[in-house]
Amino acid sequence: MSGTQMDHDVKEYLDSYKVDFPNEDELEASIEFIMAKVPVRETRSEVIKRKANSLMLNSVRELLNFGWAFWTLNGAFLLLGMISLIQWSDEPYTMIFMLAPLPFIVGIFEIMKSRDKGMIELELTLKYNAQQILTSRLFVVGLYNLLMNAGLSAVLLTVNPEIQIARLFLSWTVPYVLVTGIAFLLALKTKGIPASATFIALWIAVSAAGFRLPGLSEMFIKIGVLPAAGLIFAGVLVWVINIASIRKMGIGGEKYES
């Protein structure tokens, strides 16, 4: 049977039925009924609001589940920091430079614990998945570090009014952005605890030795805004790489397991 013949037969068959066209009210009622079942597309602001709420909720949960080691080590470093600031009160810029990235570096093992403890495969399948969990932990530790640095700056400015606010700000923002970025990059490539421990030791040793070299301390303290901004920009770039790695994070390179 040809296509045209079939079309004709189907038309003839359908013509034997009479279908009443619905009236306006029936049309409206049908549309209203269906509309209730159609998912409404979120606006951009609604998406941002939902994601922000989710980040807050996840961050609070992660904060409450941080292990004692994080708080103990940070408490110890805070104490050490306060003693150092009193001991070397004539070198506030140097001291805050050295202390600035430490809370974050200490927190790396807490941020990376999903992968290090073998939980990542399971967490990748949860509603709030591994990437969201890791981002929340990053947010908590990063914010905690930021508050510590801001608090320490406030204390220094209170006890020593001669300190220049802008210089003090640069002294901690450069290591806070750049050094934490490099430390986290290292942790992504290796494991949280060794990366954390190695980087703390390395950072303290290198920065302490560096500031003992004649001229280097002076050079950093007198660093211009532009070079400092350049270093901060480099730090931001490292963080862009880190965030891209988090987004692609899977079960550790997805190796074949026989």
Binding site: G67, K117, G118, M119, L126, Y128
Partner: peptide, 28 residues
């Protein structure tokens, strides 16, 4: 989805109850 991987790690310092509560929270 409910998933049990072949090799699963655990947060050792969590109690059984806390571990399940944590996962439940991540499951929304």
């Amino acid at each position: 989805l409910g998933y049990l991987p072949q090799h699963i790690g655990y947060y050792k310092h969590f109690t059984v109850e806390k571990f399940l509560a944590y996962i439940a929270s991540l499951k929304g």
